[in-house]
């Protein structure tokens, strides 16, 4: 078993290496990137790494006065199509203790409302959850669904406001202003690392023009050649509430079957994916 994994890893590493070299070569093109291109690349690096992925996620929801709520889950994702395209998510909860065995599934479509299902073990029932605005909170945290699975590029007007260094890393600073008034913020500033295209920091400004929410990538690790944000935080400055997310484990290109994303497995998730 162990042997196989190492072998697989080696092979995959090679593939990733090749891919990566191609990607790395891109910024050296003669003409500079447009704001849209930066955002597209950033989404690719942030939400669409690999064909699929698995992460054991620990979320700490911390109130202003320091009270904590914990969410612990395994998040499985599979891409259907290129960056910006369809994706399927499968989440299994370990914590809080009274929701153990609860599962949650999302079909994400570009330019269309998500489909979501939830399995409530206490009454052994799968319920479809109506999709609503994507800027609603993800499992009660300071992150929204969009923060977890990305926002359609076309929904915002993107402008490259400046390029500057953040923590000794060269960044593009992109201003994204939603075209419709469907979210809480008036605009967002993102510091996108020129090297990895991961967002290192995001600032959200409300309709009064005040900064009220800050995202930060606090730890970035290389996982199978994919730079992955393994620690991140979202802090709401007006409520004083914050959420800290740690990827305890992360993996890519693990061969998740299509059949996983079904009502049957929502009720009884395969052991291998939730260990």
């Amino acid at each position: 078993m162990k042997n196989f994994e190492i072998q697989g890893l080696n092979f995959k590493f090679l593939v990733v290496y090749v891919l990566c070299s191609v990607l790395c070569a891109l910024p050296f093109k003669a003409f500079p990137l447009t704001a849209e291109e930066v955002v597209k690349k950033s989404q690719e690096a942030f939400f669409y790494q690999g064909k699929d992925s698995k992460a054991r996620v620990l979320m700490k929801l911390i109130s202003k006065s320091g009270q904590e709520r914990v969410r612990e889950l395994t998040m499985l994702r599979k891409n259907y199509g290129a960056s910006g395209g369809e994706q399927k998510y499968f989440m299994y909860f370990y914590q809080p203790v009274d929701v153990k065995d609860m599962t949650f599934m999302v079909y994400k479509y570009p330019a269309k409302d998500d489909d979501r299902w939830l399995f409530v073990p206490a009454i052994n029932m799968v319920r479809r959850i109506a999709a609503q605005d994507k800027s609603s909170s993800f499992v009660g945290s300071d992150f929204t669904y969009e923060d977890v699975s990305g926002r359609d590029i076309e929904d915002d007007n993107h402008t490259l406001t400046k390029e500057e260094k953040l923590d000794a890393k060269d960044c593009y600073v992109i201003k994204s202003a939603p075209k419709a008034q469907d979210v809480d913020y008036a605009y967002k500033l993102s510091w996108i690392d020129k090297g990895t295209f991961l967002p290192l920091k995001e600032e959200y400004y409300d309709k009064k023009g005040e900064l009220y929410k800050v995202f930060s990538a606090d730890e970035i690790k290389d996982v199978k050649g994919f730079p992955t944000i393994t620690k991140r935080a979202m802090k709401n400055l007006s409520s004083g509430h914050r959420t800290e997310v740690t990827y305890v484990k992360a993996d890519y290109n693990i061969g998740i079957e299509d059949s996983l994303f079904s009502e049957r497995f929502l009720k009884q998730p395969p052991k291998k994916w939730i260990e």
Partner: peptide, 11 residues
């Protein structure tokens, strides 16, 4: 517990 969690997921 699960109902409250369900509520907190989107409220």
């Amino acid at each position: 517990g699960q109902y409250i969690f369900l509520f907190s997921m989107s409220a």
